[in-house]
Computed example of a mutant assay.
Amino acid sequence: MKSLAHQSVEEMGGAGSVLSRQKRDHVKLDRLLGRLGAAPPAEQNAVLLQIYRLVFPHAYAEETVLWPVIRRVLVDGHELTLQVELEHQEINELATRLETLEQSSAERHRVLERLVELLREDVRDEEDKLLPALQMKLGVSELRRLGIAWEAVRALSPTRPHAIVSRRPPGNVLAAVPLTILDHCRDGVDSLIRGRTGAASSPLKGLSSSLARASNALERLPGLRRGEDPSTRRGTARPPWAAAAIVTIVAASVALAMAGRKTGKRSSNGAI
């Protein structure tokens, strides 16, 4: 099998083929990892957020669309996809761990180093093994249709690490929309935080943390863990009533953020 790294766009089935779409993302990731390596510690989080927005929707769509096809058409499809699912699982766990570590801690450096190493390893496994094997089983028209499906799912996939939710359908399919909404809200909040310091950022940081807790509670709901392989199962399930707690957490966080904004405006008006 010829690695995608050494194939032209035409060999991969054209720009619309799922192989070409995958490789374009891998090229973008390589550039972002280079930027991350050159960034000072204070600027790493901004680059990491860009990496997350690229790799987590990419991987989620793979797990939802591509890997089921590989398991269906390849004799060793289960083993091949499980290897990558385990890599995805560790990437999610490492990224989640990073969020809890101080910028200057030695552990953060080790976790970040392992995350970068694993992301590069994941690209090689996909370009050298999984995707060429899929290419040998499907025609160009099938690869293009698969590319459209993968792109559509990617647009509706979470942008943050989720180490608890199933890595396989139907659990990950059921979790996609609610987790994506929470993640996009958190992405927006975190973008606002970077433009503020001190007391002005506190309500937003509280909101971001609450959104993260809501996502964590959501992905533990029993139905969202269906279909996963036992080797990637993490955490414990929560009963359905936990969904009500999620709504409460988010609503309270939004109210807190709005109250903080109003307080800030009153303080500004009083200073004039």
Rank of each mutant, 00 (worst) to 15 (best):
P68C: 03
G34S: 05
V75A: 15
L94K: 02
A251E: 06
R144D: 07
E107R: 12
A200H: 03
G14W: 09
H109D: 13
N45G: 14
V18K: 10
C185G: 09
R71G: 02
N172Y: 02
R168N: 14
S191W: 03
Q44T: 04
L143F: 08
G13A: 07
K2R: 15
A199S: 09
S104K: 10
A199C: 00
E62N: 00
A257T: 04
P203K: 11
L98I: 09
T64V: 11
V73L: 05
A251R: 11
R167E: 12
L101V: 12
E127D: 15
S208F: 08
V69S: 07
G223E: 05
S201W: 04
L98Y: 02
R124P: 04
R114N: 04
V153P: 02
E93C: 00
T81V: 06
Q83K: 10
I70G: 01
V111F: 01
T180N: 12
F56L: 09
A214V: 10
E43S: 14
K129I: 13
P240E: 08
P132T: 12
R213T: 06
L115Y: 13
R72A: 00
S231L: 15
S166V: 00
T263Y: 02
Y52K: 06
A149N: 04
V123I: 15
L112G: 00
N269W: 03
P239K: 11
R160C: 04
R225L: 14
L221G: 04
S157A: 15
